[in-house]
Design a protein around this nucleic acid. Structure first.
Lengths: 337, 337
DNA sequence: AAACATCATGGAATCGTTTCCATGGGAGCG
DNA sequence: CGCTCCCATGGAAACGATTCCATGATGTTT
């Protein structure tokens, strides 16, 4: 088989100039008869315009980059799906890569995306603010999703209202009578700090004294989460409710409770951030705060491609969260463990 | 800020020809001193070679396309992760898109990837064999993953040994004494037929008569799965074990059993294909057949980029599955529902 | 010392598009 | 009938890289 046909081949086959063929495919004004002939020739030759040639000339590739920590995380997968949906509707393709929480790898991915001359980058940033500062300088445009970096206030971002979600959850647990509520949270220094701060704030507002050793941190891995949960529930048998700051932590709490033969919610109430699919399958089903990964991704992509002007104005876009009450939280019981 | 620097700018800044700069960046032979000067100039100008220019000249983009039905499906997400891991190690980027089971959308995505001049395509094909036949003709190279299309035997593919998994599961259930085993399967005509055939084959080999109305089909959606499971368990109260052909169907079986107040495994044993994360969180944890989405993706990518010669030789690559026994299946009890 | 092999280097063509500009023809208008 | 205006069309110059080929300068061998 011959090499793939080019615009020149089509022009020759249709007996027209290449400029005319180009016009046919990129929407210039061409007489109906000519257009017909060109399309026929193109069909005959199986011609597809080369995005490389076009991209070179136009100095943009018509694609965007998407960097997430991990595509297998259900919430991040939803976010990816949201970006894909929006990008597709705007005719752009998406180059996806996973940084696995490693700032170096993240920087390398950005480097690659810049070489690809993507029209923009959406990222759930992992690490280094300095790297991103450099990236933002060289890269056309960046939008953060689901997470921001402390040092970079002016990068546009789309976030869920995590603080609101944590607050709602805390108030809900307090409303059930719980006082010794544990917070199973993200890594100490990390941006997850938003949730922890919200928890502390909510308790303060409710007039519930905070016991420091009921706030435990874990790196975002199954093992670390399990260890943190196990440590907490063994150390403090008097805890009556656990608020997990993410679905990995919620999972850990459920498993540890089961391991320790604690009944949920009779012995301990469990609730978590992130309403992932298994929350409903759990026994009992888990109360959780839902935030739409799909919406975050979609909105971030819109912000990037559709509203370049509005980007970054007025701080990050905040998307609502919703408390989904299921069976894993119960009222405080007088007689306990 | 000026427009992004090109190779010409760097050449001028370093006082060398553009050919030399090109050699520095794509590994030609350059004297140490000159290389130094060029790199310095490049650093000064924040120069990144343009993949568009290079791609145009080299007639390949250095990227591959990946088409899956849905990135939010945990198994498919793993597959995506596998492809990303392999592609990264080979220095290629990955354009991901989701076809949502729609052959038209799939064809459109392929079209786009061809325009992007990707070096190859990995697909979990949804539909139309004819479309893929056309695609395979025009597209450099295609590898199917996790699924094949009946009409296209010579497209290279990487699959899990689903048949083996189903067989193992069937034998396991039969070994526990079950005779009225239901098969909750994929759409009637669809490629999921592999699993159903394996189920029928295993029963036959075990000498267990098959009752046709214990084999039910459902489209791959939560609602359809739930409806199918509910229909089955209500219609046939004498079923003692359910083999779900996928995690959505397993999920449905669990929910329906709970809804009908059936104890698992005392009243009914449940097992499924796909060892997704929640299988372990379920109460009781679900027995399942594990297959590694990551491996399938990784292997497919290797096949595509690394072993163009071996592609398609000797039929599809089959990856092993593993029966993970948990608590959701028990021995047949004499007195039942 | 002369001839030759080796090597770093630059020039120029090329990859497949888009788009500016010039050209020519037809239609509309005075 | 002649002028203008418009529209379809083709030529040619970018866009940013790679790479063949020629050239001049080294270093090596007899």
């Amino acid at each position: 088989m011959r090499r793939t046909a080019t615009i020149k081949d089509v022009a020759a086959a249709a007996g027209v100039g290449i400029a005319t063929v180009s016009r046919v495919f990129s929407g210039g004004s061409v007489s109906a008869a000519t257009r017909e002939r060109v399309l026929a020739a193109a069909g005959e030759l199986d011609y597809r315009p080369s995005a490389l040639g076009r991209g070179l000339k136009l100095r943009r590739s018509g694609g965007i980059g998407l960097i997430v920590p991990d595509v297998t995380d259900p919430f991040r997968a939803e976010l990816v799906a949201g970006v894909l949906a929006c990008a597709r509707s705007l005719g752009e393709h998406v180059i996806v890569d996973a940084a696995h929480g490693d700032p170096d790898r993240e920087a390398e991915i950005v480097e690659r995306l810049v070489e690809q001359r993507v029209d923009g980058v959406i990222a759930v940033p992992a690490g280094d603010a300095a790297d991103w500062r450099a990236a933002a300088r060289v890269c056309s445009s960046v939008v953060f999703a689901d997470r921001v970096l402390p040092g970079l206030p002016d990068v546009p971002a789309v976030l869920a209202d995590d603080a609101g979600g944590v607050r709602a959850l805390t108030e809900y647990l307090a409303g059930l009578g719980h006082r010794r509520i544990a917070f199973l949270g993200g890594a100490p220094g990390a941006p997850a700090g938003v949730r922890e701060r919200a928890f502390r704030g909510a308790l303060a507002q409710l007039g519930i004294p905070l016991e420091e050793d009921l706030v435990v941190a874990a790196r975002p891995s199954r093992d670390a989460a399990y260890a943190a949960a196990a440590g907490l529930l063994q150390r403090r048998a008097d805890v009556t409710a656990v608020l997990a700051a993410g679905h990995l932590l919620g999972e850990a709490a459920v498993l540890v409770a089961r391991e320790l033969d604690l009944r949920v919610p009779a012995d301990v109430s469990i609730a978590m951030m992130d309403d992932v699919a298994w929350a409903e399958l759990c026994d009992p089903p888990l109360t959780a705060v839902a935030r739409s990964g799909h919406d975050i991704g979609y909105r971030a992509c819109e912000l990037l491609l559709r509203e370049p002007a509005r980007r970054g104005r007025g701080g990050p876009v905040l998307l609502p969260t919703e408390l989904v009450v299921r069976g894993s939280c119960g009222p405080l019981r007088p007689s306990r463990r």
